[in-house]
Write a protein that binds this DNA or RNA. Structure first.
Lengths: 338, 338
DNA sequence: CTGTTAGCGCTTTCAG
DNA sequence: CTGAAAGCGCTAACAG
């Protein structure tokens, strides 16, 4: 660590520490000429204020935390990109915490942030438990929290997510319009509002279009590849197997696609797929894998903007409302089959 | 921010601040009973030490920074995953800075870190300029820097990367063994050691196997999709076009694959591809897209471990050497054509 | 075993 | 316009 601090500068210039501080902070009450002298020397010695002394004094860290379940999906890394983008533009630093879908880690990280390490938190819940005292306790300490994507409905704050119900509905209709009669649902088992909304969108679309839902063809994946593979294999191996699949999450969709290849089904002729996905390469994967793509970068940016608005107003209470950005249904044109 | 601090605890328990501090730090010189009392109250009031006061005092932040060119590729997000993994296991926090391939931002971020905000830095150079004073200045201030992937050879510190020369060599041989006669090289224009090593591996493999290199078929992409598309189109449109492509970077390979689809070439029969890639979905993309896959997660972990070793020894100087983890050549089995 | 005190580097009254 | 001094919350001598 450098030993260039205010005292160094003050000594060198025969000024007091406070004057130097004021000069660097561009205070009204310091002469133009001293300001010049100070800032010149500061630049020359490459002075950087000690962030901890400053945070300690100002009770503000110019740092925010992102807590999210994973990072190796394109969706979340795009979100981080958006967050970093806005944060840097505001001179803020970004701490990253990955829960790997563990509730316990989420609690641990929240507790780590209880004492001012960050001015605010952006969070996508791993929370399968539905418990949220750790978050409430964070907010009780005046640390604003904004949710993105996997929001927590029971907490009164601002939430950014997508129009999951509508896009699931539209996506299902999309399959139905293609004349697909036996549509399976591929989701993951979790109590997230997101899963619920997507499932409801699927169900309503089916009902409103008088397509029957076969309970056997509603598959909840676990995230364990082996188990999920069995489930999907079974789904696709029986005689009355589906000829369309609506996947509410990306990972099972990819697994499904792999299995389809192994079973040597002909896509898209025997099976049409639509999936929530932010894979940039989805278009390369298969012409029939129509995607419901969420505006990830924009989600990250918007959540961060909202957080900063609160921070700017001396931690003004965040209003309790949900912004739903629109997902886009992207259909591949090609009809090549594999 | 919470107002539970050492003073609060001390007042409540009729102890001095220093005793409370010692008790919480599990010092030798405090009785078992007071330790109990203190830690009980601390837990009860959910006491969290103020990180800034601590950092200011200890001159250590328990935080590291990751500076890297981008995050939305699977490769880099896997690396971050590895970094976070080791950092958290050591009780460290992780700050993220994305340069978006901009040298200026890299310089800016390094300067932000000059004054103790972090104890160490993990870095993958965007540096196209080859300039590295900003990094030297960081190290001059006793902040250890470990490079990963895009290392900076002229800086004397530890570097973690992969055996790029060897795997490029092997990859090329792989194509040659398949009987491919006209092999194009797809890279990006940059002075990175990585690019150089991969290119050299390609060249040497070609020479040693007496396959001629056609200068027309060495294409350097820019990262601008439109330009790159033109270049690749041209490469594939001429009569004596290549029947094999060695891609030293993932992005041009994907672009290439897209174009191939548009041109309706038959893969793998008319064109065999091999590419450096960490796409988890590469196997789904195409059976012929053999990949050279870098151990990204392990790169992240190893770099972080090495950094911590230095931090543990009171910022012991990091030795100047390069660790080269092995990439894996993964060939898809299927022979289906698109 | 415990308390007193000084000081990390900074900002901000309060006095000139 | 500038300086002296206090204090943010913590740790670590030093003294009992």
């Amino acid at each position: 660590m450098s030993d260039v601090n205010l005292k160094t500068l003050a000594r060198e210039l025969n000024l007091s520490v406070s004057t130097v501080s004021r000069a660097l902070n561009d205070s009204f009450e310091v002469s133009r000429s001293t300001k010049k002298k100070v800032s010149n020397l500061a630049r020359q010695l490459n002075y950087q204020p000690n962030p901890f002394a400053r945070s300690l004094r100002n009770k503000s860290s110019k740092t925010i935390a992102v807590i999210l379940p994973e990072i190796t999906s394109n969706f979340f890394s795009l979100i981080i990109n958006g967050i970093e983008n806005v944060a840097r533009a505001n001179g803020y630093h970004v701490l990253i915490y990955i829960t790997h879908e563990s509730d316990a880690k989420e609690v641990e990280y929240c507790s780590l942030l209880q004492n001012g390490r960050v001015d605010g938190v952006l969070m996508s819940m791993s929370g399968h438990s539905g418990d949220s005292v750790h978050i409430k306790s964070l907010m009780a300490r005046q640390i604003p929290v904004v949710f993105f994507d996997r929001i927590c409905e029971e907490i009164a704050t601002t939430k950014i997510t997508t129009n999951d119900y509508e896009s699931a509905y539209q996506g299902t209709v999309h399959l139905i319009r293609k004349g697909v009669g036996r549509i399976a649902y591929l989701g993951i088992s979790s109590g997230h509002s997101i899963s619920k909304n997507r499932f409801q969108g699927f169900v309503d679309a089916m009902k409103n279009n008088h397509v029957q839902i076969d309970p056997e063809q509603i598959v909840y994946c676990t995230g364990h590849e082996h188990t999920d593979r069995q489930k999907i294999l079974q789904l696709l191996s029986v005689p009355g197997r589906p000829n369309g699949i609506f996947a509410a999450v990306e990972q099972p969709a990819l697994l499904c696609y792999e299995i389809v290849r192994e079973l040597d089904l002909s896509i898209p002729h025997d099976l049409k797929l639509i999936s929530f996905s932010n894979l940039r390469t989805a278009s390369l994967l298969n012409p029939s894998l129509t995607t419901i793509t969420q505006p990830a970068f924009e989600i990250g940016r918007e959540a961060t903007r909202i957080l900063f608005k609160a921070l700017a107003c001396h931690n003004a209470q965040l209003d309790d409302f949900t912004i739903r950005l629109k997902s886009e249904i992207i259909e591949r044109e090609s009809t090549a089959s594999i």
